[in-house]
Amino acid sequence: MKRGLFVASSLASLGLSGCGPLKDALTNGPFHSVLSGTEGLNRVVIDTRGMARLYPDSAVDRNFRVNGLDTPSDDLYTRLARSGFRDYRLIVDGLVDRPQKLSLPELRAAGSLAQTTRHDCVEGWSAIGKWNGPRLGTVLAMAQPKAAARYCVFRCFDRDASGQPYYESLDLHQAAHPQTLLALDLNDAALDPDHGAPVRLRIPTQLGYKSAKWVSRIELVATLDGLYGGGGGYWEDQNYDWYAGI
């Protein structure tokens, strides 16, 4: 009996420490496409029709956690920030009938929805913030997307250390969700640079990396193929799921 236990535990520890190469091979080898295969299934089962829970204003984190890539420090962004984003224009173009160049006052005039929601990071932590801004759906409607448009791609001011720009994308169904905002304010004050000023996407029904900060342009496209890594977003190109509702 004791010998059996000894053999079993030795085999288990040997197996665990010796299977590093096996784990690497399974993760990166032909099995890799199987690993990403559940994304579509999760999306069909969960979808994004549900409404994220709304919190009282008293629940907000006054020091909302800052994360993501570093705050942009290039000349263009610095110049825009110094003038309070007076010269900032959000470009909405691509497969649209009426391309837009919207100033911050024009975005505020497009409607203002205040929502206090929880931000769930893919890492596991959560923070609550009060966000304010027009619905993404309203802004997209102003540009009148063509019938061929299927996705909106968010181009951002931030870049990683190797110069790769941040970008994100949603399909038009997710973009039309009534809680998907172009946030201009956090906790009743205009977004500061560290939290994505002047405009960040806020989609509370998906994980935080979908809520792109420092948005400069929204491009409507028919396909995400051929765009950077083809994954539809900066983190998606690094193996994170495009559908981030799970």
Partner: peptide
């Protein structure tokens, strides 16, 4: 430790993919 996690090296994206596939 890496000998106990899947994948071994720190890799949240692939860890999630393993987890979500085998949850099914």
């Amino acid at each position: 430790p890496g000998w106990l996690t899947l994948p071994g090296p720190q890799d949240l994206a692939d860890g999630r993919r393993w987890h979500l596939l085998f949850a099914w």
